[in-house]
Design a protein around this nucleic acid. Sequence first.
DNA 1: TTATTTAAGTGTATATATGACACTTCTGTG
DNA 2: CACAGAAGTGTCATATATACACTTAAATAA
Lengths: 220, 220
Amino acid sequence: MLVSVDCIILGFQDKEINVLIVKRKFNPLKGGRSLMGGFVRKDESLNEAVARVVAGYTGVENVYMEQVGAYGEVNRDPGGRVVSVVYYALIDMHQFDEQLKDRHNTEWVNVKNVGPLILDHRQFLDDALRHLRIQSATHPVGFNLLPEQFTLPQLQSLYEAIYAHELDKRNFRKKVLDMGVLEKLDKKDKSSSKRGAFYYKFNKEKYDYMVKNGVDISFI
Amino acid sequence: MLVSVDCIILGFQDKEINVLIVKRKFNPLKGGRSLMGGFVRKDESLNEAVARVVAGYTGVENVYMEQVGAYGEVNRDPGGRVVSVVYYALIDMHQFDEQLKDRHNTEWVNVKNVGPLILDHRQFLDDALRHLRIQSATHPVGFNLLPEQFTLPQLQSLYEAIYAHELDKRNFRKKVLDMGVLEKLDKKDKSSSKRGAFYYKFNKEKYDYMVKNGVDISFI
DNA sequence: TTATTTAAGTGTATATATGACACTTCTGTG
DNA sequence: CACAGAAGTGTCATATATACACTTAAATAA
């Protein structure tokens, strides 16, 4: 039996969550739109296979990934019996290697406007996004979609994109700042306003310390 | 590459969550304690493989199952390269076929006192229980561990077992009754008190209707 | 028949969390 | 120096969660 991994590579830009899609130039399923996948080699773990695939398509190493699940219907792939293990990977789109876009014929698509995908890839994407929503409500996974330094308006629009609904600015800021895991920097991002918004960064050590000591944290 | 399913079969009895364990009579790993597993056949889906394994060890068909995840470290099984997909199954222990216990050399063990298990099965169990806790907080999965008719004290002790901490009787009853998905029957269980406790049953139709209409329900 | 025992069943008050809501401040540009 | 536009800030009302102790039903024993 063949085992493959399929990767939902997600990035965040212009207040939208985007997914990297391949437009297939060759058979099988030439012309179809597909997620990135690959067969798992005998000498690599599932995680290693995902890291290999993601690095190959994006140039990003040490990517943050979460497993969505294994899909094993008998006829899910007409090409043969393949069990697919689906992961999503969250990358900072600034680290994406643009040159690989042409080489592999990929494009970033807003998750709100993804058209049809081959096989059961649409299902994979929907399940991954559901998983991401659940995960980001209780774990600090969203930061993997942002640069190390980000502003609160950016962070808010990220959560608004993940949950597909707007949040109240004051309540949002109160909540994330009260958690005590954001570090305010003495520097502003002036790209989106004259006044500028202060940069923050996520303090992972503090977060881990709080989790270890049973402080329960919920994001949004 | 081989694909196997491993099943964490859980049951509830005497206020405790129990897991079915095999004491292996034959090699490989003779004498070890193990979860129920089996290789996925070419003509069956993952779910079908789990259903086959669970029915074989318990006699219970149409079992409720949830996938925990796929485990694919290269050397997780010294016998060869095997990707294992882990599921947990929740059964009503009254439906368990006791005859199969001797046939397969299995036993029910309180999850609080499970000793060492072979390979990475301990990890599987821990991950499954974590999954169960998360799942039962927001979905009515616990009922699969109870007979169709159950009392509120039973239901409460089930949740206490799942979360491994005690709950306030009044708050618990208020919460589950206010949800409006339990149907009170005109019948009492007198096995654990002179007064007897009323039987209830879970109204799945009502629950599904509420979910469909966006009423958000949280169990505990 | 009455007293005793044991678990089932019930309500309120307080604390905490959530959600709604509008104005001021900063700073670059015209 | 006025204007524009996004960043930043606090309070009050409501909903939810939590803490807490007595009464009731019914079998059994006296």
